[in-house]
Design a protein around this nucleic acid. Structure first.
Lengths: 176, 176
DNA sequence: CAGTTTATACAGAAAAAACTGTACGCATTA
DNA sequence: TAATGCGTACAGTTTTTTCTGTATAAACTG
């Protein structure tokens, strides 16, 4: 094998590994491959360059870049005299991980807490009225207990997310 | 509206919210709904009961339960005299979250580290041989720097995962 | 042991997601 | 202003995933 091919292969191995594991960020391996490719490119890339490298449609590159921008993994770059949009990877992986973790879980927590709050209130109200028979009361009591457990759990999880959002996690586990 | 309906609705709201957010655990909302239903059931359930409640095929219940068991969210229960398999939710959400977080990220880290190790070794070897022109050397140098950054990041992330795996996280953020 | 009953493997249908090519709006250039 | 070039909306196609019904093997019952 040619020396040049060997170097390319070493790079491609890493790109492919990143691609295969990008499902951790809920994107397809195609989008992951796009990220990996941009990561190893020495400068910002245009959509046409991406399309060229990955042998995919420009539309896919466009939507792929949008996904990566939402994840804050890629950002748009301005360069005077250049008509095409340029994109580069955001190379702070620590921040990318934290942001993703926070956004993802915070959203889930919030929605579930909202539903729990509403339902807990309704059940408590029903308990206070006197139109439940014993069996119903017992069932509502059981539901309330479960919902309260869930609320406590989300309170805890929220604090875990705070750890990452505040950057406190970097005091606990220091960057190399 | 009937009082009974209102109580059911309160429960259903929470189940549906859980279902919608179970994509955090990479399962479909159908599987999430199954989990929610089992969570609020007072005892263990059979596949037929699930099928009945969710109006879905028994096959789906079977595969759904398997998914939830892999996530350690559900476990099989033995009861003498009962021919059908019984399943109940594992109600330690703190552990479920930690386990999922660890398994998920540990796997990604490991695979990426493996690829990085191989490629870093190859590139270093290439640098030591004397058959690279200046341009190539520069390119390899740039790749190596990126790969080393990635390795450092994964080392850090591994330590974060350790925090959850060891349970140390519960000293930092205490359970309510 | 024959007759049920249970869970699941498997194949196919239905639904969802990913991807492509065309068309169009907007911006820049001449 | 006309002409060119860019990114993306959109519709249609392909691929993947989810879901169902049937068939079957294993386990239980009498």
């Amino acid at each position: 094998m040619d020396q040049r091919d060997k170097l390319d292969q070493a790079r491609e191995r890493v790109i492919e590994s990143i691609a295969q594991n990008m499902d951790l960020y809920s994107v397809t391996s195609s989008v992951g491959r796009l990220y990996g490719t941009m990561f190893f490119e020495n400068g910002p890339m245009t959509l046409d360059e991406m399309k060229e490298k990955l042998h995919m449609s420009k539309t896919s590159m466009s939507t792929g870049v949008r996904s990566l921008m939402e994840l804050q993994m890629v950002e748009k770059v301005w360069k005077k005299g250049e008509r095409k949009d340029l994109y580069k990877t955001n190379d702070d992986w620590y921040k990318t991980f934290s942001d993703f973790f926070c956004i993802r879980w915070r959203k889930g927590i919030e929605l579930n807490q909202k539903a729990l709050n509403d339902s807990i209130a309704e059940l408590r109200e029903a308990m206070e009225g006197n139109d439940l028979d014993d069996e119903e009361k017992q069932s509502v009591e059981a539901d309330l207990e479960k919902m309260q457990y869930a609320m406590e759990y989300y309170t805890w999880l929220n604090k875990v997310v705070d750890l990452f959002e505040s950057g406190e996690i970097f005091d606990i586990v220091e960057k190399p």
